[in-house]
Design a protein around this nucleic acid. Sequence first.
DNA 1: ATGACTTGCGCGGCAAGA
Length: 268
Amino acid sequence: MASLTLEKTRVRIATWNVNSVRQRTEHLLHYLKETSPDVLCLQEIKCQEDTFPRMEVEAAGYNVAIQGQKTFNGVAILSKHPMDVTKGLPGDPSDEQARYIEAVVQHGTGVVRVASIYLPNGNPPSTEKYPYKLGFMDRLIAHARHLLTFEEPLVLAGDYNVIPEPRDAKDPAAWTQDALFLPQTRAKFRELLALGLTDAVRATTDAADLYSFWDYQAGAWQKNFGIRIDHLLLSPEAANRLQSASIDKSVRALDKPSDHVPVRIDLA
DNA sequence: ATGACTTGCGCGGCAAGA
């Protein structure tokens, strides 16, 4: 009797705020080659679709889906596998900022829905920027609630601009008045998790000093004054397949780095 | 220390980021 190979293929999914994809093209291509994610979510590409380095990324073996914007913001999903793409976060047709793109990825025997999210920074909190951040979080909560009804593997990945807990900052006292750490911000993030989503990094380790961002200023990298603000949130169907989560910290030590590093997971 | 760095835009010096 011939044996059937029913072994599910591993799916590696990463997220990275690159702080301008055109400034970071070499780093991006190196990361694709070295780490070989099946899916890579990008944020802050800072360009429109027609100036994205599409040919180089396609030559590396990836399909490209982009929600671009001139100068600011901009998100993308790169995938080795076919994608069905949806652009924009529902709930506010007047929102013109490019901060959300979603794709259903067909991989081998399975399917996974992946979102690339660039959640607003929200600083300074005394301005209209903070209510925009909270409103975006409300829309994300509503959309996630809807997506969870599909009961499929779902990965909401991106730069959340949220420090979930004090242990997610080297110096939490420095962030108490910051939009990334205000109680209302963290409460909305907990509301998102309470829908039934799992923070992939915290599901795999309680290690201290896990950060995904170090400011360019004041020697933050050298002093390890980091914060953990880039997250992959998993539906139960994805969490059940979670094998590992890692933060690719070494990328921050390269020449001319992004101020964020990639965070990635492997699903069985 | 009103700082410190990096980007886009566009060619001078802001705005934005976190």
